[in-house]
């Protein structure tokens, strides 16, 4: 186990370096000269452009630029600044709460609805509620987040007018539709997973023994059946927290939510390279770290798994 943890930690470092390097490199290849774009129609003196290039390390060789950039993040939490001079850490600090709020709403929906639906379907296998959950989850899992987002917007936002269709002015209420849209795929998968595990568990020997001992049905299901069924779901939901960040780009754009995901999309359109690299790097770091934690958690939670 200790060896597994050490090996996993050692793998983490090169993955982070190469992944961030790729993102940084891609942006390096962005077309056009951002300094000229900044100057707009008015011509800028060569000296002024040179000063700006120097300030953003644009004259250094590529790897040196990357090195300076990573050094800045590690030592000072400095993700660079926008071309208009605003530090990116400012923007992140301002927009991160919005995205975290969206992530929190999404995650709660996935965990609560997914697990409850899965338990109901598993307990009442082959009954109406099970069939209902099965059909619903097939549809939820097979529709892209984008489509679910727009459908919710059209039905519950425009047609029924129950929820706002854009922005975050109404507080928690404005996060509900985007949260459901973002949660749909994983909720479906979590429900299916809980159902499958619970059905297996309820047919297992230890549950039969518990029933034979005369324990109440409630105690058998809760203490014996569910306990083992929830392990894979916990790790699945954990891993999903990481991928959820990518989904924020789409959903924040669909629902006009001023978070980090929408910021990536906006700055790509505006060719603001530093912003793209900064936020994407942040996302990738988050993604890789969560995956690491989940892997370790999985090994810890499930004693059946042995790592040599």
């Amino acid at each position: 186990m200790t060896r597994y943890i050490i090996r996993r930690l050692l793998q983490f470092v090169p993955v982070v370096i190469i992944a961030t390097l790729i993102v940084y490199a891609l942006n390096f290849l962005m077309p056009g000269d951002p300094i000229r774009a900044l100057a707009g129609d008015r011509p800028m003196s060569e000296a002024a452009m040179e000063t700006i290039r120097e300030e953003y390390n644009l004259n250094d060789p590529f790897l040196v630029q990357y090195g300076k950039y990573v050094w800045g993040i590690i030592t000072a939490g400095d993700f660079g600044s926008t071309f208009s001079g605003r530090p990116l850490s400012d923007i992140i600090a301002q927009r991160l709460p919005t995205t975290l709020m969206l992530a929190a709403v999404t995650f709660s929906i996935q965990a609560v609805i997914g697990i409850i639906a899965g338990i109901l379907a598993g307990l009442y296998k082959d009954r109406f509620i099970d069939r209902l959950v099965q059909v619903t989850t097939v549809i939820m899992v097979a529709l892209p987040t984008l489509v679910i987002g727009f459908l919710l917007q059209l039905i519950f936002g425009l047609n029924l007018d129950w929820f706002p269709i854009a922005g975050t002015r109404d507080g928690l209420v404005s996060y509900i539709l985007p949260g459901i849209a973002l949660a749909a795929v994983s909720t479906g998968m979590a429900a299916r997973m809980v159902r499958g595990e619970l059905v297996d568990a309820l047919q297992s020997d230890y549950v039969r023994t518990a029933t034979a001992k005369g324990l109440s049905r409630q105690r058998v299901v809760l203490r014996h059946g569910l306990r083992n069924s929830l392990i894979p779901v916990v790790t699945f939901l954990g891993a999903d927290l990481a991928t959820l960040l990518g989904g924020t780009m789409v959903i924040e754009t669909v629902f006009n939510i001023p978070g980090l995901g929408a910021m990536i999309v906006d700055s790509i359109k505006g060719q603001e390279g530093t912003v793209v690299v900064g936020i994407v790097t942040l996302f990738v770091l988050f993604f890789v770290t969560i995956n690491l934690i989940v892997d370790l958690l999985y090994a810890l939670l499930d004693p059946r798994i042995r790592y040599e």
């Binding site: 090169p14 992944a19 290849l29 990518g246 790509i268 994407v280």
Partner: peptide, 17 residues
């Protein structure tokens, strides 16, 4: 390595160039 990059993010940044 490639798996470590969420594919939507990777594609978004790459397609942009």
């Amino acid at each position: 390595m490639v798996f470590a990059i969420p594919y939507m993010l990777g594609a978004l940044v790459f397609l942009n160039i």
